[in-house]
Nucleic acid binder design. Structure first.
Length: 664
RNA sequence: GCUGGCGUAGCUCAGUCGGUAGAGCAUCUGAUUUGUAAUCAGAGGGUCGGGGGUUCGAAUCCCUUCGCCAGCUCCA
């Protein structure tokens, strides 16, 4: 007589079933519909029988529907309504991809194939690279395998036997994983899908026929184990969804993001360019981008002054000796432009502003009464980035940081940090971001060779950062080991209009440079003490922030940032004078206004300026001229408004001053 | 830097089998004077990224170099 076990279901009911019953059996017993919809199960051993195996079972675990249940279990059947099931579904999609690849290209060796945030990939090793045509073939083959509805079958093999099988096939990567993830006496878990056998802990959906919507997206290189010294594998990316509809929505979202690409909009709106003749990663700000940059710089400089920073300027090239003192020559050399030999010495372009600010600090004897000293600069730096990593405005070789260094006493540090964090949030808010994520990056005490400074320094600094975040009631994630080598830091990531995260603002402790440069101040008791140094950048880089702004607004900047805020559109030649008159009034209050007096139809002008995303188009014809009004066409709004010209002047003036989004 | 793809007019792109360069938009000129997202006509504009090679002949095939794109690795 078979033993029986108890299975507890989410509705609280309990079933008594024979030991070895599977989740799919239980699903069938509940309803055939559920059995059809079921993809995977979530199980946790019930009660305190105390013999739950270590590791697995202590927490709810996802398991195959066909896995026999051996103990009393708390069971949930997951269907296409559960996000957790989607991850499994995508992992199974990756297996489907690998199975199809092996059918078509049996010589291929397998790496690994996990689910990702929005899809999956599988890494392959093959002497001849896959082509885009191969991708089509693979996708067709996957379709066939879906039609055949092949089960994802799990087996357990003695480790030696499994290793031998993979070795026999030349699957060196699988052998590596087996050796790394299992112990000699263990049995190893494998899944078979047709000809394809994978070392995999699972779980998987029941069969290939359950995959309803998938698409292969692209092929790219990826280093084996992520190490660039290793051979390069071919990674095939794809995505899959529970329904075609979901997938279409996702692909549309990707298209949407493409339309916001700052490189595309930068060209369409004539904001900036990168010139082949000048070199990669070097940005030319065109007149329209230049206006936005000026707004960004004005805003920042005004805030610097308001918040007690001193504005400084430091040279772009400095002697090599300085970089030796700062230590950049040693640990940062591979990111610096090469030295240039002059008569007296070798000089290097600056990759960072810190040493310059330090020299200013050090130029005079500082009293504790002078502190904090806050030196701010919009400092242009040059970094040698490897050729494959440049990306529009987001990763460049020459860029301007809104960089400041604060030198203060240990007692002052918490207030300074708190001010920086608030400053950062004000920046981001004023530019139209209102969602953030904050991270505290700390050191890893077990990895001392990558961090300078004493335990005491690290602990004190980390504690003050934590204290500040708590006192400001900011939620944050702590990320151990992610600190700069010279001190812990707070990073603020913003969330853009379509939910993407960007890391720009950073506030960092620096134990290294004050030491290296022998910075000091005279304390109250007359002794010389080392100041605490904080390094902070809020835009991060003006270029990168600009790129993010372009994508956030999809080029439709709020009026205060718009290169052209208003265009006057006279209906015919006889209205040009009136248009000029209104334009003069707008210009007088600082509005960036243009008069489009070209010999074009009004419709064409509206179309062009609308495409240029000008926030306000003012059409003036006989009616307006007679009444002294303007007809206001607001970006993104169908209906136009007529109002006295003077009223529009006042309204837009206020709108710009308030950095507001809409008139009134 | 690595793997793969791409580079044709200012922009977006077409160009078959190797046979001597094409469209739309933009620009210029002329006509037209317009009521809420493209008025019509004409003209000009190219070392087909650069260099080398194969060939009677190269945008097309090969080599090389520069740049761009996706991803990896690294980062503000």
């Amino acid at each position: 007589m078979a033993e029986s076990i108890h299975v507890k279901l989410p509705d609280g009911s309990e079933k008594e079933v024979p030991k070895g019953t599977t989740a799919i059996d239980i699903a069938k017993s509940i309803s055939p519909r559920l059995a059809d919809a079921a993809l995977v199960a979530k199980a946790m051993p019930l009660g305190s029988n105390g013999d739950a195996p270590a590791g697995e079972g202590a927490r709810p675990t996802l398991i195959d529907l066909t896995r026999p249940l051996e103990k009393d279990t708390d069971l949930r059947i997951l269907t296409d309504r559960d996000p957790e099931a989607l991850e499994v579904y995508r992992h199974s999609s990756a297996h489907l991809l690998a199975a199809a690849v092996l059918e078509l290209f049996p010589e291929t060796k397998l790496g690994h194939g996990p689910a990702t945030e929005s899809g999956f990939f599988y890494d392959f090793y093959r002497p001849t690279p896959f082509t885009p045509e191969d991708l089509d073939k693979i996708e067709k083959k996957m379709q066939e395998l879906v039609q055949q509805d092949i089960p994802y079958a799990r087996e357990f093999l003695p480790r030696d036997q499994g290793l031998a099988e993979f070795k026999n096939e030349g699957d060196f990567m699988k052998c590596h994983f087996i050796e790394q993830f299992t112990k000699p006496e263990e049995k190893i878990s494998i899944y078979r899908t047709g000809k394809f056998t994978d070392f995999c802990r699972g779980p998987h959906i029941p069969s290939t026929g359950r995959i309803k919507a998938f698409k292969l997206l692209n092929i790219a290189g990826a280093y084996w184990l992520g190490d660039e010294k290793n051979p390069q594998l071919q990674r095939i990316y794809g995505t899959s969804f529970f329904s075609k509809k979901d997938m279409e929505a996702h692909l549309k979202q990707i298209e949407e993001a493409k339309k916001r690409d700052h490189r595309l909009l930068g060209k369409q709106l004539d904001l900036f360019s990168i010139q082949e003749l000048a070199g990669p990663g070097l940005i030319f700000w065109h007149p329209k981008g230049g206006i936005i940059r000026k707004e960004m710089e004005d805003w920042m400089r005004e805030q610097y002054v308001k918040r007690g920073y001193s504005l400084v300027y430091t040279p772009h090239v400095m002697r090599r000796q300085l970089w030796q003192t700062s230590g950049h020559e040693g640990y940062y050399a591979q990111n610096m432009f090469d030295a240039m030999e002059l008569d007296d010495a070798e000089y290097r372009l600056k990759p960072m502003n810190c040493p310059g600010h330090i020299l200013i600090y050090k130029d005079s004897l500082r009293s504790y009464r002078d502190l904090p000293v806050r030196l701010g600069e919009l400092g242009t730096v040059y970094r040698y980035e490897r050729s494959g990593v440049m990306h529009g405005l987001l990763r460049v070789r020459g860029f301007t940081q809104d960089d400041a260094h604060i030198f203060c006493t240990p007692e002052q540090i918490e207030k300074e940090i708190a001010d920086c964090v608030e400053f950062a949030r004000d920046v981001l808010r004023d530019f139209g971001f209102d969602q953030f994520q904050t991270e505290l990056s700390t050191w890893n005490p077990d990895d001392r060779k990558n961090f300078v400074g004493s335990d005491e320094q690290w602990n004190r600094a980390t504690q003050s950062l934590e204290k500040v975040l708590k006192s400001l009631h900011i939620e944050y994630k702590t990320i151990p080991g992610e600190a700069a080598f010279y001190g812990p830091k707070i990073d603020i990531k913003l969330v853009d209009a379509i939910g993407r995260l960007w890391q720009l603002s950073t506030v960092q402790f620096d134990f290294n440079l004050p030491q290296r440069f022998g910075l000091e101040y005279v304390a109250e008791d007359g002794t010389r003490k080392q100041p605490v140094m904080v390094h902070r950048a809020l835009y991060g880089s003006v270029e990168r922030f600009f790129g993010v702004l372009i994508e956030h607004y999809a080029g439709a900047f709020p009026a205060w940032l718009s290169p052209v805020q208003t265009v006057m559109i006279p209906i015919s030649e006889r209205h040009v004078d009136y248009a000029n008159k209104v334009a003069a009034q707008l210009h007088a209050v600082g509005v960036r206004v243009e008069v489009d007096a070209r010999n074009e139809k009004m419709n064409a002008k509206i179309r062009e300026h609308a495409l240029q995303k000008v926030p306000y188009l003012l059409v003036v014809g006989d009616k307006e001229e007679e009444a002294g009004t303007v007809n206001v066409r607001t970006r993104g709004k169908e209906k136009t408004d007529t109002m006295p010209a003077a009223e529009f002047v006042e309204k837009i003036k206020k709108l710009i001053a308030d950095k507001a989004a809409t008139l009134n």
